[in-house]
Structures are given as C-alpha cells and as structure tokens.
Design a protein around this nucleic acid. Sequence first.
DNA 1: TCTGTGGCTGAACGCATGTTCAATACTCTA
DNA 2: TAGAGTATTGAACATGCGTTCAGCCACAGA
Lengths: 225, 225
Amino acid sequence: MRSATEDQGHRESADDRTSKARIRDAAIASIAEHGINGTTARKVASVAGVSPGLVIHHFGSMEGLRSACDEYVAVTIREFKERAMSGGPSLDVLAALRDAPNGPLMGYLAQVLADDSPAVARLVDDLVGDAEGYIQQGVESGMLRPSDDPRGRAVVLTLWSLGALVLHQHLRRLLGVDLTDPEILTSPTAAAYVAPIYEIYGEGIFEEAFAAQTRAVFADDQGAT
Amino acid sequence: MRSATEDQGHRESADDRTSKARIRDAAIASIAEHGINGTTARKVASVAGVSPGLVIHHFGSMEGLRSACDEYVAVTIREFKERAMSGGPSLDVLAALRDAPNGPLMGYLAQVLADDSPAVARLVDDLVGDAEGYIQQGVESGMLRPSDDPRGRAVVLTLWSLGALVLHQHLRRLLGVDLTDPEILTSPTAAAYVAPIYEIYGEGIFEEAFAAQTRAVFADDQGAT
DNA sequence: TCTGTGGCTGAACGCATGTTCAATACTCTA
DNA sequence: TAGAGTATTGAACATGCGTTCAGCCACAGA
C-alpha cells in the first residue's frame, strides 16, 4: 500500500514533501482555521495544489483524511512531549505543547477537541495520564500538595486546560490572550491568563474556614450516601 | 410583524405551542443532540411536524433560526439566573444553571460555546460578569479569598467551567460524569467531578513554599518587563 | 525509441442542502 | 355568510458537497 516515493513519517525532508503529506498538512491548517465543517475536499486540494480527486485517491475518503490528520497530530504531540519530558517535568501539560514545531497544531486541537474522534479520545487519555505522572512527580518533590483523588484531580486540571483552549476565542475577547497563537510564549499579555491561574493553584479561592466547611460536607456525603 | 395568534415569550402555555415556537424548540433539541452541522432545515421541520418551507418562512434563513435559538437560550438562562440569585449567591455559575427548566439547555450550550455567535459571546460576557459579582460577594462575606486580579480570576473560573461543559464527552468517558444530563444533581457520580474541584478551590495544588516561589517570579516579571 | 506503470487530472454523477414560490388550507373579521 | 389575509404546503431550483473514473503524462526499463 505504501510506494517507494513516499516518505511519510520522515518529516526531516523539509521542502519537497509528498503530495500526500502536502494534502495532510493543508487539511490540518484548514481545520485549524476554518473548522472541520469549513474544510472541504476542494479547498484542501486547492491549498495543497492538487486536484480534488487526489485527496480521495490518497486517503480513501474525507473521513480517512480526518483520521490521518488526527493520528498525525497525536503522534507529533507525543513525540514533542517525550522530548520535553527529558528536559524535566512540566507542571502544565499544555505549557509544554505551546512551542511545538508545527504552527497550526494548537488551533487544530482547539477545533477537534469538541467533537470526539477515537484518535482524539486516546490523545486526551494520554494527556491525562501524563498529567497524573507529572503531578505525582511534583508531589514527591514537594512542590505540589497530595490529593485525595490524584486521578480525578489530573482529569479536572487537564480538561480545564483543554477547555480553555477550545474556548480560546472567548479568552481572547475577554483577556486578550490567544492560546492558539504559536508565539504565545513571547507575548507579554499571556500573564493576564497565567497569573490568575497560578494564584488559584497557589492558594485556591476558598478562605480556610470555608474550605474546612466544604471538606466536612464532602466527608458527610461520603459517609451518608 | 407579530400576529395575534403567536404567544412567543409566554412559555406558560405548555402544550399548544405556536408552530414558530415548536420549530425553535426542535432546533434547540437537534443542535443539543446532533450539533449545529447535523441540524438541517428538513430534520428540524420533521421533528417540529411542519414543512421545510415554514422554517424559512418564520425565521428567514437557517442562520436566522440559529440566532433565534441563541437569543432564546440566552434569555432563558438570564431569567433563570435572576430567579436563582434571589435565593442567595451561588459559588459556581454553572451550578445554578444545571437544574434549569428546559432539558436540552446544557447540551445546546455545550455545542454552541465552541463556535462563537454574537449572542453566545454576550452570554459568556454576562456569565463572567455575574461570576465576578458572586465572587466579590463571597470575598466580602469572608468565604472567598481576595484576588490580585478579580476580573481575571472570574474569567478563568468561568471559562474553566464552560470548557468542562464543552468537553463533557471526555469528562463522561474519564470520570463517568455527564454535565449535559438534566438530572445530574441527583446522580451520586457527580462527586467524582465536584470533589477534586472543591479540593483545588480549597487549598490550590501548590505547596506553600512553591506557591511563594511562583509569586516571586510573577512579581519579578511585572517589575522587569 | 518504444512501452508500461503509477501518480495525477478534471469532468461528471448522485445526493443533500438552503431557499423560493405558486397554490392551498385555515381563521378571523365584517 | 362572504371575504381577506395569514399560516402552511410541497414541489422545484441552484449550489456545493463527496466521490468516481476514464484518460493523460512523466519517467523508468528494455
């Protein structure tokens, strides 16, 4: 099924990409910008500089192209995560992803996270699992507090991060921070989003007396129900 | 433009709704279940028991129908919020919305929050503004800690809640909690989602030494840059 | 130079969509 | 009861979609 001229998986060869690779990249960029429903076979073919027929010829159908994009993005993210992991554990999973090589990667995620595909579901599961590992490392090194439900906390923190990514349009309108901007790290406005997060991460939002009260309620619930 | 037979805005009359109202409700239910792109004029007409032509006749276009749905949902939420506000301030804005009268309301929000419309943007702005008010009340009554950036904190907390709603499929897969379920309050599994949240709200996730360290970093950033 | 193989084209097909419009059913008014 | 005006229909139209397919064209081997 794979011919000799294809170099799929070897993304080191930069300029002369296979038509198949060009179609895939064009689809990812189009989905990141116009969403899944705004991405048609003809538009992708036009951006990639090929005919609409070739899109189907290479990927079987538009659903096949979508799956290939999901898989490619998932693999790219996993590769980048491994590289980032060797440089020490990161607190926020997304923070390690923001300077990923491919530009429209965050935009693609923002568009695809809402309507679930199998590849995206697996990617989210992986992100949660990695976050659980990072958090555990943070707990062991004394940076992070232990939790009554480490997995539940990892799920909540990861979905909060990903949810903010999906709602990046609202975040940009409200705080002027664009999470899909590839160069977000160099933007000074990012502090408007990061500072409140670190404040919550640092001290929560409940005063201690009220926090103890809610803890008691949950203890009662667990005992009663 | 508005005839005498319509009773739009008077949702007290339960069974005999106007055709226009039936079309609008069918569209909301369809969008909540199948998303915006899975909602066609013919499907809505079929569910509402009318012809496709009547959909356009009443709303001008599908975009007009979409706007009408956004507006109706926004008004419904605002009405319910006012009623909930009279019963005392609520910590989480979404918590006050979960037992809203209309069933598919949360599902509709989950589908619509991602791709922004003017009405949804205004609704989100309102939710943030309300949250800021609630939080300020909580601070004044000694339940919540004050913040260096009250508005930023309100934005982050609101978008985290709404983001979790948009990603409800992942939340259900990972924790078994479905935020779009109208009867979520009676479900005992909701604690799997609420308990980690209250833990984070209560004490954050940073140990105190590390929290002080991050505070120092942000103070340096603000001073240097 | 001839030949064949495979990437690639682009015109075409079937389908679903949003929308239009003349005709019809209905309901209220006079 | 007669008329008027509106709600409603359902067939039709144009459009854009995914997909198909017969053929072109460049290039490798004999």
